[in-house]
Amino acid sequence: MTPRSAGARTAHRRPVATKLRDPRGLVGWLFVAPALIFYAVFVLRPITLTFQYSMYEWNGIGASTWVGPANYGKVFTDPDLFDSLINAFKLIAFFSAIPVVLGLAIAATIRRIAQSRLALVARTVLFLPQVIPLVAAGIAWSWLLASTGVINQLLSLIGLGGVTRAWLGDFDTALPAVGMIGAWVLLGLCTLLLLAGMSKIDPALYEAARLDGAGAWREFVSITVPSLRQEIAVCVTVTVIAALASFDIIYIATQGGPGNTTMVPGLQIFYLAFAEREVGTASALAVVLMVLVIACALPIQWFAKDGNR
């Protein structure tokens, strides 16, 4: 057990009690137990049940029938279900790629004025989308993107009246439009995270690079990006999970339409489980989603950790 200092007087006097009070044993466990119980009852048990339900055909009300892995077969063969997974991956391009790449570019550009008053105001403003409910973002943006909305008004103003449309109701643009809402929500967070990371980079590195005659681009590629490895990994993880598990925005903005162009696994699970009462299929999709999220998150974490060693 823990090497105890000889001066622990109580320990000398009552060895049995000490054993009981050993913070690494029973007492320590008493500290962990309440958290563990909540976690087990409301997370671990439901996870196990999701696995179990996924093996049954069940309408949520009557009796259930064991169907083995058939529901998984359905997830990968029914185009409606499989397409929702594909859509989630397409959303990554918007939820992750845009905020991270654009965030990097913006952070690099404003790095020099990071301490100005304007930048401090910007810190607050850029955080707003993180603070408000995603539902509100969905409501506001579906109105902006409507056929009579501000986006079309602005496009007409700059002479692009020809491309105006109901962005969320068009088969070609609905998914990108929903993706842009996600990008709007996540861009501020990524920018500020990366900016915070940049402030930790030793300015001497940049000076050295300048002395070597490196341009802004060289600086960016050979100093900024490698130093931000961990921050970038964090941005990618957070945004990829947000894309794969998206629900709120799409529930509000498109309900998965038009057609099924914006259907994502989260919404599909909700519909399947509660409106169509195909609990088994919903659970199989839920298992696939959980596995996908972990499968995407783990490699990114390892990538970040390796870079630190």
């Binding site: 339900y53 993880t237 909700f270 489980a273 298992v287």
Partner: peptide, 15 residues
Amino acid sequence: LTLPFEGVITPLYYQ
């Protein structure tokens, strides 16, 4: 840590 809530919402409902 990375659990999407949609993954457990169905059993949670019945629970």
